[in-house]
């Protein structure tokens, strides 16, 4: 029962996280920042706007992206197979990429291209993380991982690799070339408007929930460690976001595949010897 409630409220939790992040970022820049519920105000406002449909596929793919992502989060909360979740998540990313390519806008194409490249960069690492959990606990099931004790110490290199992924996945500096509001105006989301943009907007919140749910898996059944990890990483990611500038997509891939993949493979090799 509590799981069903959690799943239903997952977008709201993500929205609160996003609102809190905006306040936090503003405070870091010595500003006051918007109210905590600002994302929800935006959401209500978008409901009341006129919506343009570029073509039906574009709109439907956008909604599919949102629904798949919600399913991914639901499966995570239910404690299903991690590998399956990662591939389902890839499917949701593919939907948004296809939506980006289905319109004629150049920015949308560039955004979709970059989204594809970043999927290329983070997907192997997500799989390696899953393999690392399998080697530790002997199962891909999230419910099993949650029951065992924390695995952050033996998987520390993988944890570092995963840290590198978070800005890429949440589109934060320095890895935000896929969204890049100042140059390609949001990339894939540029042609969505009104209620249809709403789905993309909420999908962004769900992405937060997805990433941080993956993160707390490193803490296993240790709730205190989980909270500490979540808060620490949340602060760290926003600090890095405020303090760095955007880098090119090419360098993103080089850094992520070069450093994170090496770290992950080293960790796996170490695990198989122990």
């Amino acid at each position: 029962m509590i799981e069903v409630m959690l799943i239903l409220f997952a977008p709201l939790i993500g929205g609160l996280m996003y609102g809190f992040e905006r306040v936090l970022r503003a405070r870091m820049q010595n500003r006051k920042g918007p109210p905590l519920l600002q994302p929800f105000y935006d959401m209500y406002k978008l409901l009341d706007k006129q919506a343009f449909i570029i073509n039906p596929y574009h709109t439907v793919l956008g909604i599919m992206h949102f629904l798949t992502l919600w399913t991914v989060v639901a499966f995570m909360i239910f404690g299903q197979n991690l590998l399956y979740i990662i591939f389902l998540h890839l499917l949701s990313v593919i939907f948004i990429i296809l939506a980006g390519f289905s319109v004629n806008s150049v920015y949308s194409h560039v955004g979709a291209n970059r989204e594809l490249l970043s999927a290329l960069a983070y997907e192997p690492i997500l799989i390696i993380v899953a393999v690392g959990f399998f080697m530790m606990h002997g199962s891909f099931d999230i419910s099993v991982i949650r029951q065992n004790s924390a695995s952050i110490v033996p998987l520390f290199l993988l944890f570092l690799a995963f840290l590198l992924l978070i800005p890429l996945k949440l589109k934060k500096s320095p890895f935000d070339a896929a969204e890049a509001h100042q140059e390609i105006v949001g990339g894939v989301e540029i042609e969505f408007s009104g209620v249809y943009f709403e789905f993309i907007y909420i999908a962004k919140w769900l992405e937060y929930v997805f990433v941080y749910l993956l993160l707390v898996l490193f803490a296993g059944n240790n709730a205190v460690l989980g909270t500490v990890l979540f808060l620490g990483v949340f602060l760290l990611v926003n600090l890095v976001d405020n303090a760095t500038a955007r880098i090119k997509m090419k360098h993103v891939i080089q850094i992520v595949l070069g450093i994170a993949l090496t770290l992950g493979l080293l960790n796996l090799a170490g695990l198989s010897y122990v």
Partner: peptide, 13 residues
């Protein structure tokens, strides 16, 4: 931004 203003740069939103 404390009033919720964002400079979007995208006419459709």
């Amino acid at each position: 931004e404390r009033f919720g203003v964002i400079n979007t740069g995208n006419p459709k939103q």
